[in-house]
Amino acid sequence: MATSQIGKVDTVVDAKGQVCPMPIVMLAKAFKDLAVGQILMLLATDAGAKKDVAAWAEKTGNLLLETSEEGGVLAFYLQKV
């Protein structure tokens, strides 16, 4: 996560230890409360989240800015459009 180029996030959703479909559900819930332009960081350990988060961003038209992985923890940075 230290490798991220993104300086500032508005919300962090910690879905570590949660299995599918929880990371997506937690992401969808938290995204509702974001304002346009705000950035959310989602942390997950479920490997399936990689594919699911990318597909969710595509379906909803929001931006997946960056994905990183460190010590088995995935970090996704998403921006509300």
């Binding site: 299995v19 599918c20 479909p21 559900v25 399936g48 969710w56 379906k59």
Partner: peptide
């Protein structure tokens, strides 16, 4: 209707 991108969580 289902919350993720397939009809059941387990692939």
């Amino acid at each position: 209707v289902f919350p993720i991108n397939r009809p059941f969580p387990i692939q």
